[in-house]
Design a protein around this nucleic acid. Sequence first.
RNA 1: GUGGCUAUGGUGAAGCGGUUAACACUUACGACUGUGACUCGUACAUUCGAGGGUUCAAAUCCCUCUAGCCACCCCA
Length: 416
Amino acid sequence: MTLTAIKGFNDVLPGESGRWHYIEEAARRVFELNGFGEIRVPVMEKTELFCRSIGDATDIVEKEMYTFTDKGENSVTLRPEGTAGVMRAFIEHKLYAQDPVSRLYYLGPMFRYERPQKGRYRQFHQIGAEITGVHDPLADAQVLNMLTAFFREIGLDEPSLQINSLGCPECRPAYRAALCSFLNERLEDLCEDCRRRLTSNPLRTLDCKVLGCVQATAEAPSMLDHLCGDCDQHFGSVRRYLDLSVTPYSINPRMVRGLDYYTRTTFEMVTGLLGSQSAVAAGGRYDGLISQLGGPAIPGIGFAMGVERVALLLGQREFASTPDLFIATMGSGERDTAYKLMDGLLKLGVRVELDYEGKSLKSQMRRADKLAARYSVVIGENEVNSGRASFKRMSDGTTTELALNAEEIAAALAVR
RNA sequence: GUGGCUAUGGUGAAGCGGUUAACACUUACGACUGUGACUCGUACAUUCGAGGGUUCAAAUCCCUCUAGCCACCCCA
C-alpha cells in the first residue's frame, strides 16, 4: 500500500454511508421539529477563538489541536469542536438582534490530534445543537428531551441520560476549595494521575477509574451540596421539567466536562457498549461563553454527539436500497431498446439497473439476484418485435406480461 | 505522550524451518447455447506489511522499521 489516508482519518464507504444518512436525517427531522435551523460554519477558525472558548489549560487546546500558520502568517486551527465557531458566527452576524432566542444546529467534521482507538478518531463528526438567549431551565429540558427523542427516533434505547450541575462562578470556587482540602487529606490514597489532577483539574479525580481513587473519593463533597441558591433552584427546575415530560435520566454528581465554558447543567448520554468511550453525546449550559467571546451577556446551552459513536451503536443493520427493476438484454441488438426503457423509467423515478457490458444472460440474472432487484425483465429480439415482455418478480418467480412502455411499467411495478 | 496485541489474496483466515501457500466467501466464466437463488466445474497470492540477518532451505527463527487495533490519558 503506497498511499493511504492519514492516521485517524477514515473513509466512509458506500456500504456504510447509508447508516450515516439515517443518523443525519433523523437528527435533522427531530431538531427541525423543535424549531432548530441549520447553521454551516467553517471547519477552520483563528486559533485564538478556541483558546478563549475551550480554555487554555484544557488538553484539547494544550495538545490536541491541528494548529498551523497559513501563508498570511495567521495562526489557524481545524476546529476541535463545534460550539465555539457557531457562537463566533452568532456574535459576528448579531443573530441576537433579530430574535432574542436562537436555536441552531450543525453537523460536520471536527479534528483532534489524539491517539486513535475504538470510537475515537482524529477526524470525527459531530451533530450538535445550541439554544441561546434563554436563562430558564425550560431550555435545558427541551435540549435534553430533544436528545432523548433523537435516540428514540433512530431506534436505540442504549445510551442513557446522566445529568449534573457544575454550579456557576459564584458557587464553584468554594466547592473546588472544599474538594481540594478533602483530597489533600488523602493524598497517599490517590494514584499518580490524580495527584497531578489535584492541581490541574481537581474535579477530574471524581471520575478516576483506579479502585483506590474510587474508594478514597467515595465520601468526597458533592458539587450538588454546594450549589448557590440560584443554581440549586435551576437544577431543581430542570429535574422537575424532565419528570413532567417523563424523560428518563439519572443524576451523576461526579460527572465532569472537558471544556472550561460549562456552567450549571451538564449532561452526557452514556453507554457501556463502546469500549472505553462511554459518551455518545454530551453538553451543557454555557452562560458566560458568549460574553467571553466579545458578544453580549447572553446565556446558552447545547450539546454535540459523535456520529461515529452513534453509528457504532447502530451496528450492522442494513440501510442499503435495492433496485426496482433489472433489465437484461440478449445481445447488442437490443441494447438501444433497453437503454431507452431504462432512461424512461429513471425519469419516472423507478430505480433501474441495466448490465453495462453485455455479459451473458446467466451473468446478468445472477447480478439481478445479487443486487436484490424486485423485478427483472429480459429484452431480446422477440420483445423488441412484439413490444411486450414478461416481468419476473424475483421473490417468487411469478411473471407478468407488460408492454414496453415506461409509464405502464412504472405503474405496474409500483402496485406490486 | 505511555503500554499491550497483531500484520498472509478483494474479504475471513490455515500454515509454527523443507519442493505446487489449505479452506471458505467474493469476483469472472461455464454446466442450461432466452432467464437468478440451491448444486457442480474452472480461474484468481511467482508470494506471506517493509528492509536486513541466520540457514543448504524461511510465511515460518532473529533484528530494525512501518502500519493497524485495543487500552492508559483525554474526550463526542
